[in-house]
Computed example of a mutant assay.
Amino acid sequence: MSAQAPEDDLQVWVDQDLCTGDGLCVQYAPEVFEFDIDGLAYVKDPGGELLQSPGARTAVPGRLVLEVIDSAKECPGDCIHVVRGSDGVEVAGPEAA
């Protein structure tokens, strides 16, 4: 069994309480992240709809896995969480091992 999660098994969410509005995530993966009128980043569902509920998660498109993980690693607010959908283990973000 591979140590890496299947690409379509990853989910991402943003903790808006920690978001600094820096915008790296929107630059790295604009299909996944977007600013709302409050100046904070949110995730979008596969149809492009902004998910504004606290802790709302969306699937990470396979072709954007690296960009989303880089967003989590580079985020100055440490507010982006990338987790495996199967077990909820954080693979990138402030709680990643």
Rank of each mutant, 00 (worst) to 15 (best):
V91S: 02
A29M: 11
P54H: 12
E34Y: 00
E90W: 06
G21M: 05
V65W: 02
P30M: 13
E90D: 07
E67P: 03
S86I: 07
I80Q: 00
L40Y: 07
E74Q: 13
V14S: 08
Q11I: 13
P76S: 10
D78R: 15
G39Y: 08
G93C: 00
A72E: 01
E49L: 14
A92G: 02
D9R: 12
D9C: 14
S71E: 03
L64S: 13
V12M: 14
V65R: 15
E7W: 05
Q16I: 12
M1E: 08
V26K: 11
P94H: 06
V83P: 00
S86D: 09
D38K: 06
A92H: 00
L24V: 11
L64M: 14
L64W: 11
V89S: 13
V91F: 01
S86T: 13
R57Q: 15
G77H: 06
E7A: 15
V83W: 00
G77V: 05
Q4P: 01
L51T: 02
A3N: 09
D8P: 01
H81W: 05
L18H: 11
A92Y: 01
T20I: 02
P54V: 10
I80C: 02
L24N: 09
C19G: 09
V91E: 01
G77K: 04
K44S: 11
D15C: 12
